[in-house]
Amino acid sequence: MNPRQFLNPWVLFGAAVLLTAAALHNDYYLTLINFIGIHTLLVVGLNLLMGYAGQISLGHAAFFGLGAYTSGILTATYGVDPWLAMLAGMLVCGLTAFLIGVPALKLRGYYLAMATLGFGIILYIVFNEAESWTGGPSGLTGIPDLSLFGFKLDTPKRLFLLIWPVLGGIMALSANLVDSRTGRALRALHEGEAAAQSLGVNTSRLKLMIFVWSALYASLAGSLYAHTLNFIAAASFGFMFSIKLVTMVVLGGMASIWGSFLGAAVLTVLPEMLTMFHDYEVIIFGVILMVVMIFLPRGLVRGIMDLWEFRRYKKEGGIIG
């Protein structure tokens, strides 16, 4: 391996995960890092939909909740094997996304945003009201720990060793995806739907596929979340959490897998580190959303990369873009 290959982000990522596992023993920090992982999983999925395909979802927390509740209810109430429940969650989520997606993705822009927002709020109301199933506002307790090869994943360290390799795998899948035929079609759909169609891209099918795909990520994240906390309550899956996810995408940058990680990490750590942040959290999200979109509409990381790249080519060729 030559030295440059060590700078490959994937190698660095793997090394960081191993190092953390070996050196970090503080349960608080490990738990925090696990939440970063779960959030990154959600944000990568949302970014595929929003940043790459250009389709907004203001109700992504609903899929997260659907995954969490399917896992939670099946394991805590019915004693189903957690891994099986996780699969069931993905099935439920995928199916829901499909059924909602068929009519919703015919809508554009503002209408799609409103439809996903409405859908998110309906599910949130159901999470709250269907108390006999979900425990309502007071929550669902007694969700068992996951276990793998006979090991109970009951400590933050053990969960870390599940969540982060899984996340690494999902991020690799996503990076492959965006660099594949389908990924190019997604980006093409975002930047010019008519042009993409004129080249044979079935844009409505593609939108539906990526919507379902990103719902699957959210479902997986939801299941992991339920087994990490052993407890879930409706308040975690409301409108504000959907907005928080959008903020993570915007902060990290549209159409950027690593940016998703950054956005999720910053907005997961900040509220924990700064206690004053808690009261101002909502204001800060609002400011981030507005300021970043006004000045760098493709998000922070991607926006800065664009500026650099455009400048480079303008300098080299003396071209006016």
Binding site: N176, S180, T182
Partner: peptide
């Protein structure tokens, strides 16, 4: 696009 066939899963799994 029209002359190739790798779908979402095939692309993600490379």
């Amino acid at each position: 696009h029209r002359l190739s066939r790798a779908g979402l899963l095939a692309g993600a799994l490379r």
